[in-house]
């Protein structure tokens, strides 16, 4: 059977990522952020999403990528969750892409350790590879490394 699924895509340091469309509540431009002192370093801060307070996670930090330059403002991909939404900070938003399950492959063994656990697999698109993000992992915060 030909299974198709829609992915909301975004870019992080040139890498092309995707998240299932159903999990995404909305995508919004940069929002002013309130830092949370003493919080784990992956937490970028809190944003006001129409009266709701949403924790923003710096995905670059989470995936072990280089830090974003201060003049580059991140975009928010807001992920729907039972206990309130969480925002993932990304560099740039891409299109919604329809992918074919047949083009799916598990992450190659050569992918480096830290990044590998956040990626559920790879879709082989014509032009490039699309990495499927494990949102639960991406939103998990371990330890209390002070910022």
């Amino acid at each position: 059977m030909n299974m198709e699924r829609q992915l909301c895509t975004f870019f992080l340091e040139g890498l092309f990522f995707g998240v299932e469309v159903e999990k995404v509540q909305e995508v919004i431009r940069y929002q002013e952020m309130t830092r949370v002192p003493l919080s784990p370093a992956v937490i970028a801060g809190l944003i006001n999403l129409r009266g709701q307070i949403v924790t923003a996670i710096d995905l670059r930090h989470q995936l072990g990528l280089s830090a974003r330059k201060s003049e580059e403002l991140p975009m928010n991909v807001v992920i729907r969750r039972d206990d309130g939404p969480i925002s993932l900070l990304v560099d740039e938003i891409g299109d919604v892409v329809e992918v074919d399950e047949q083009s799916f492959e598990h992450p190659p063994d050569t992918l480096d350790g830290q990044r590998r656990e956040f990626i559920r697999g790879v879709y082989k698109l014509k032009q490039q590879l699309l990495l499927l993000l494990d949102t639960e992992k991406a939103m998990s915060v371990v330890g209390t490394r002070p910022a």
Partner: peptide
Amino acid sequence: QLKSVPCFAGATIMGDGRV
């Protein structure tokens, strides 16, 4: 994700819309 920080009881939105 922020429960590990002991010194905050919550957050609020101020008059100017910031948290």
